[in-house]
């Protein structure tokens, strides 16, 4: 009866479940659910959160997390745990873009500290916050897995490598 070997299921009324999100998102989540044994629906929690977050414009509300829990028939707290653990989920409203600067070892050695300082000063924004004009949310994140081209910055879904503060500025400039 361990936490790991027995899934905790909290059955959701089918009538409720079939009306969550929208048909496309449900279908997309279902494709992920299909990858796991039937009783392990909740293994799809990460892709489900990603899909729902995108649908909601970049961040997750408690209600949405509850709905993900209901859709995957798992305890809501287990969804909060996942959503609060991983840096790619945002639990408060975000700007139009997300500028994620890697703060892990390789990048740190190659100047990400300077990048972070630069963004803070130049755009007047602290890590985890959004610029006053709502253009972007600034995030410090853990290793992005592209260490050989450190320092690395991820903006939305695009990687920028070997960045200098000036290069980063140009890139940010191009954003809408």
């Amino acid at each position: 009866m361990s936490l790991k070997s027995t899934p905790q299921t909290l059955p959701t009324d089918p009538a409720v479940r079939e009306n969550l999100f929208n048909p496309e998102i449900r279908a997309a989540i279902d494709r992920h659910i299909a990858k796991y044994p039937p009783e392990w629906k909740q293994s799809a929690v990460m892709p489900a959160l990603t899909l729902v977050q995108e649908w909601n414009g970049g961040w997750l509300t408690i209600e949405l997390m509850n709905e993900v829990a209901a859709y995957l028939e798992m305890p809501p707290i287990a969804v909060y745990e996942v959503a609060s653990f991983y840096g790619m989920y945002d639990l408060k409203p975000t700007g139009r873009h997300k500028v994620c600067v890697c703060n892990s070892i390789s990048c740190l050695l190659n100047g990400s500290e300077a990048l972070i300082e630069h963004v803070k000063k130049r755009y007047q924004v602290a890590p985890g916050e959004t610029t006053a004009d709502g253009k972007f949310t600034f995030k410090e994140v853990e290793c992005l897995g592209a260490c050989r081209h450190a320092p690395v910055v991820l903006i939305d879904k695009t990687y920028g490598e070997n960045l200098t503060p000036e290069a980063l500025d140009r890139w940010i400039e191009e954003l809408d």
């Binding site: 305890p75 707290i77 745990e81 609060s84 653990f85």
Partner: peptide, 15 residues
């Protein structure tokens, strides 16, 4: 909560 009570209300959030 998960194993004995069968009702998970507590959890570890954050990292």
């Amino acid at each position: 909560g998960a194993e004995i009570a069968g009702l998970r209300e507590l959890g570890a959030t954050g990292r």
